[in-house]
Simulated assay, not measured.
Amino acid sequence: MRLTVKVLNGDECTIAASPSSYVTDIKQQVAALMSIPIANQKLLYKGKPMTDNKQLSEYNIEGGSKLTVVARPGSASSADSVSKTVSSDTDVSAPVWTKLQTFLRRHYTEKDADLVLAEFRKDFNKGLASMSLDDIERLAASKIRGTGER
Rank of each mutant, 00 (worst) to 15 (best):
L3C: 02
G10M: 01
E12Q: 14
E12I: 10
C13P: 00
I15M: 01
A16L: 12
A17K: 03
P19K: 05
V23M: 04
T24I: 09
T24V: 11
I26N: 02
Q29T: 12
V30Y: 01
A32R: 09
A39L: 10
N40Q: 15
K42R: 10
L44Q: 02
G47I: 00
P49N: 12
P49G: 13
M50A: 07
T51L: 13
Q55Y: 02
S57N: 05
N60S: 12
E62Q: 15
G63S: 15
V70N: 03
A71D: 14
S77Y: 04
A79N: 14
S83W: 00
T85V: 05
T85D: 08
T85K: 13
V86M: 12
S87K: 14
T90F: 10
T90P: 03
S93V: 08
A94S: 14
W97V: 02
K99E: 10
K111L: 12
K111S: 12
A113L: 00
L117P: 06
A118F: 01
R121G: 03
K122G: 06
K122W: 10
N125G: 11
G127F: 01
G127R: 00
L128F: 13
M131W: 09
L133R: 04
D134R: 14
D134Q: 14
D135M: 00
L139V: 12
A140V: 07
I144R: 01
I144L: 11
R145F: 07
G146P: 05
T147M: 14
T147R: 15
G148R: 02
R150D: 14
